[in-house]
Write a protein that binds this DNA or RNA. Sequence first.
DNA 1: CCGTCGGCCATTGTCGGCAGTCGACGATCC
DNA 2: GGATCGTCGACTGCCGACAATGGCCGACGG
Lengths: 245, 245
Amino acid sequence: MSRLAIPRVVKMPIEAQATDALRDSIVGGAIQAGQRITEVEISEQMNLSRATVRSALHQLAKEGLLTLVPYTGWRVVLLSAADVWELYTLRSAVERLAAQLLAASIDGAGRERLAGALAALTEACDGADGARIAEADFSLHKTIIDLTRHGRLAGQYGLIEQQIRMCIRSSDALVAGGDTIVGQHRPIVEAILAGAVEEAGQLSEAHNLTEGRKLADHLGSLEALQPPPPEPAPAGKARRPRRAA
Amino acid sequence: MSRLAIPRVVKMPIEAQATDALRDSIVGGAIQAGQRITEVEISEQMNLSRATVRSALHQLAKEGLLTLVPYTGWRVVLLSAADVWELYTLRSAVERLAAQLLAASIDGAGRERLAGALAALTEACDGADGARIAEADFSLHKTIIDLTRHGRLAGQYGLIEQQIRMCIRSSDALVAGGDTIVGQHRPIVEAILAGAVEEAGQLSEAHNLTEGRKLADHLGSLEALQPPPPEPAPAGKARRPRRAA
DNA sequence: CCGTCGGCCATTGTCGGCAGTCGACGATCC
DNA sequence: GGATCGTCGACTGCCGACAATGGCCGACGG
C-alpha cells in the first residue's frame, strides 16, 4: 500500500477550510450564540473573498448553526428548550439505529475500538475536567456511529452533534458526576458487544431521552427567568454615527 | 384569508429557485442518474450566473443528489443497493420516531389531515396509475412527519425523501398491488389515531424495513447483471475533436 | 410634541472574469 | 510497436464589482 514515504498532500478547497474554521469558531464559542455577523466582517478577518465566505456561511446555515436574514445579515442560532427537545429526540432515534446495527454486525476490530472509547471515558471521568469528560462522551457516541459504516447515518448525526455541542456550551450544563456518566454508558457498550440488538437500541434511546429532558428542563428554567434576550449587540462595531468626520 | 385573487409573489432568492428547479429535474428524471453536468452548461440553460448555479449545485450535493469532482465536474449520484439499504434503515428510524411522537400528541385537526391522507392513498390505489399511487404514498408519510411539528425531523426526512424518490424512479420498482399498499399503511395510521405509541413506531419501522429490503434486493439483482456502467457519456455534447476546422 | 414621510446607508444578491488544476490526446524516443 | 513525456482544452476555484433591498435616522407637517 504505502510504497513511498511521501505524505499525501491534503487537497482541501479553501471554501471547505473556511467552513470548518467558522464551524469551530461557533461551536467553540469564539462567536457567541445569538450574535450577528456580516459577510464582509468575516471575509476581512479570514482574508478571503466575500463569495468564498458566503459559500461557507450558506453551508453552516444548512447545518443549522446560522440563520440568514435577507439583506440584513447572518445570525448565530440561539437554541431554545424546544430546539433541545428536537435535537435529543432526533438523536435518540439515530443513535438507537446505530446501536442496533452495530450490535448486529460488530467485528473484532470494532470491539477493540468500542472498548477503547469506553475506557477513555472511564479514565476521563476519574478526573474533574468537565470539558474532557464531555469530549470523551462525544467521542464514545461518535465511535458507535462510525463503526456502523453507514455513511448517511454518520452525516446526519454530524449535523445534530454540532448543534448539541453548541447548546451544551451555551448552557454550561452537563455537570453530572463522573460515576453517573460511566454507569449510563457501560450497559450500552456491553449490550452492543454482546450482540443484543434490541437491548442496545433501547438503552441508547433511553439514555439520550433522559439526558435531553434534563438539559431541556435546565434551559427552560433559564428562559423563564430572562424572557427575551433583547439585542445581543450588532457584532463588535456599534452602529457608527451618521457623520463620522 | 384570501381577500384578493392576486397570487402572492414568491419572494425567493434566485439561488433557492435554481436549487428547487434543479432538484426537480434530477428527481424527476430530466437529468439522468449518473450523468455528468457542468456549471456553465446549467448556467446557460437556466440563464443564470455561474456563481448562482454553483451555490445551488453545492446545496444539492449536501442533499446527496450530486457529487463534486474537483476541477472536473459534477455528477448525479448513482444509487447502489448499499445506498438503498442506508436510506431505508435511516428512514425507518426517523419515521419510527415521527409515528411515536405523533401518536402521543395528535390533535383533532391532525386526525383529520391524517385520515384524509390515508383516504387519498386508498383512492389512488383503486386506479392503476403507478405514479399517482407513489405520490399518495409519499404524501401520507410526509403528512405524518409534518404533523409532528418537529422542524429538524422534517428537515432530515426531506433529504432522505429526495434520494428515495430518485432511486425509485431509476429502478422503476414499487409495483406492489394497490391492496397491499393500503393494507400496509392502514394499521400504522390506526395505531397513531389510537394513541398507541409503541405500536405505531413498530409498525412504521417494520414497514420501511421490509420495503427497503425489497427494493435493495431488486437493485442488487440488477447490479449483478450489468456490473459497471462504464461511462454514461459526458452530458450532451461529445468531446469535440482537437482540430475542429 | 407626535406621527408620517423621505432619503441614506449597510448588507446581501448577482454577475462576469482570471487563474489554478485535471484529464487526455498526440508527439517523441527507445 | 510500445511506453513516456509534453501540450492542450475544459472545468472548477476564487475574486472584485455592480445592483437590489430593507432598516434606520432625520426632517417635515399636523
